[in-house]
Design a protein around this nucleic acid. Structure first.
Length: 233
DNA sequence: GCGACAG
DNA sequence: ATCTTGTCGC
């Protein structure tokens, strides 16, 4: 009986216009520490029938993948989910979680799309432009675009995701037998670098560690003892 | 007007 | 995203 998001009476057209403006600030060039020192994963989940937005941030050592810090931020949900406008609903909580970390990462992996978006400003790109932190979008399904070529079954294979004649990301087979990941640059990451950076952190699951761990934390499934469970992809 | 549509 | 058992496949 609890629930009901306070009716959101916002200007959708204005938000789309804002995205187009900010998409102008996206930089598709690698501009992160090399070698990477720390990386972070971000994802959002919900509580109280959606009334509360729960963002998770996990800071990892880029070499050992050891967890350096992990934080959860909660905020009352303000806006409903509208395809293409996801960042306005989830970014506020994500930024709170980021601020709670001991320190900012050299690179951020975000659950959602980077520039593989109608106006080239998915949540990962928006996050990057807002924070200046290099970012990559790691999504599980396509919002816009299509793959023209078949994707090999081999682990690590990738093929372009395109919208019309421009490439907006990649379909990446992170794990054999599993649906491909949709990977796209967010900010300060070059298109060719995205697949490799994601694969660098993929272990035995479909999702790369940063996003996989943030997903568990955001969805409150971070109980696992690492024994015989880990019901992922 | 009719679908499609991240999380 | 979230609600959920059993079930198919490596």
């Amino acid at each position: 009986m609890s629930h009901a998001l306070p009716q959101w009476q916002g200007d959708t057209a204005a938000l789309r216009a804002l995205q187009s403006e900010r998409a102008t600030q996206v930089i598709l060039r690698d501009a992160f520490a090399k070698p990477l020192r720390t990386i972070a994963g971000f994802d959002v989940g919900f509580e109280d029938d959606g009334a509360t937005t729960r963002a998770a941030a996990i800071l990892l050592d880029a070499d050992t993948l050891a967890i350096i810090d992990q934080q959860v931020a909660r905020l009352p949900t303000r806006m409903p989910y509208i395809p293409g406008l996801l960042s306005f609903r989830e970014l506020p909580a994500l930024l709170d979680a980021l601020a709670m970390l001991k320190h900012a990462p050299d690179l951020a992996f975000i659950d959602g799309h980077g520039i593989a978006h109608p106006r080239r400003l998915g949540i990962a790109a928006h996050f990057g432009v807002e924070t200046g932190i290099p970012s990559i979008g790691v999504g599980k399904t396509i919002l816009v675009g299509e793959a023209r070529m078949a994707l090999h079954e081999m682990r690590g294979a990738f093929t372009p995701l395109r919208d019309g004649r421009e490439q907006i990301g990649w379909l990446l087979r992170s794990k054999p037998g599993c649906l491909p990941l949709i990977v796209s640059p967010g900010h300060r990451v070059a298109m060719p670098s995205a697949p490799e950076l994601v694969m660098r952190y993929v272990t035995k699951y479909r999702l790369p560690e940063p996003t996989r761990l943030a997903d568990r934390l955001a969805s409150r499934r971070d109980r696992g003892d690492g024994t015989t469970d880990e019901r992922d992809d």
